[in-house]
């Protein structure tokens, strides 16, 4: 069976403002970022769905020594989506020097940020951009 939500399609949707994932028709579970089969039950029977694009910060770090091609400092965070899965992205509306343990548990809305590729990355990419709610 054809790969349902490829990175290229996922990226295209995200760049047009739609954060998409996969919802399983067998168990109802969500697989985000996409995989070939459901992360919960291994079924291939999943549909592409637009997600709520909201979640809660589970942890974070401030990168101060970046890989080649990135400008530090910036915040990397793991967010638990309202649909269940965890995703990695950047908290973009906070001064990195103000990041603290207080962030954990805070609600975020999820957008995107285009990222220029380098000679190893097979083209340009996109990262999830988290914004603190309220």
């Amino acid at each position: 069976m054809e790969y349902k939500l490829t990175y290229s399609k996922y990226k295209e949707a995200l760049m047009s403002g739609k954060f998409c994932g996969l919802k399983c028709n067998k168990c109802g579970g969500y697989t985000v970022p996409p995989k070939k089969v459901c992360m919960e039950c291994s079924s291939e029977d999943m549909d592409v769905v637009e997600l709520s694009a909201r979640g809660e910060i589970k942890t974070y770090t401030v990168i101060r020594v970046p890989p080649e091609g990135f400008d530090a400092p910036y915040i990397v965070s793991m967010v638990e989506l309202d649909e269940g899965p965890w995703v990695m992205g950047n908290i973009v509306d906070l001064d990195p020097d103000k990041a603290s343990m207080e962030l954990i548990g805070k609600r975020v809305s999820i957008g995107h940020k285009a990222v220029k590729g380098d000679k190893f990355s097979a083209g340009d990419g996109v990262a999830l951009a988290f914004k603190l709610e309220g």
């Binding site: 890989p67 990695m88 990419g125």
Partner: peptide, 24 residues
């Protein structure tokens, strides 16, 4: 490389996040 790399994650970053998770 697709779903994490473009966020600029590093190895110290991954374990930094683990330390914050552990503390919490």
């Amino acid at each position: 490389s697709r779903y994490e790399g473009f966020a600029g994650i590093t190895f110290p970053g991954a374990f930094g996040m683990a330390a914050h998770l552990y503390s919490k």
